[in-house]
Amino acid sequence: MDRIPILKLGDALLVTIQVDMHDRLATALEEDLTNRIVKHKAHGVLIDISALEIVDSFIGRMLDNIAAVSRVLDADTVVVGMRPAVAITLVELGLSLAGVRTALNVERGMELIRLRHGAAERDVDVDNAS
């Protein structure tokens, strides 16, 4: 069965979705990502959807699920590169993806993860010091 490749990028994972997603592929991606977050102790997940021409409620739900699961595993999910037409359509569809962080491109997404993770580590340091 086809699987969407997951790349390791520092302590983050990068998924670039380039195919028209069918449902099994989406379910498989959710599973794979969960396993890989744990295996690599990843702090962030970047999902690049700049190649996607549509995001329907099924894919929207997948993104929401991945974000929720990764939060539980102490990793931030950032969805990057959503196209304007896709964004307009998603809003009209009624999906806000409130639990998902977003960035314009992979680079900005990485920055966001580093920033958040760096801040979290500093907090821990402060706690230890006191």
């Binding site: 549509i54 995001v55 329907d56 099924f58 304007p84 037409a85």
Partner: peptide, 13 residues
């Protein structure tokens, strides 16, 4: 493009 995306998304749903 926006209208295309809307009808394709609706069709998918």
């Amino acid at each position: 493009l926006v209208d295309q995306t809307k009808i394709v998304t609706a069709a998918s749903e």
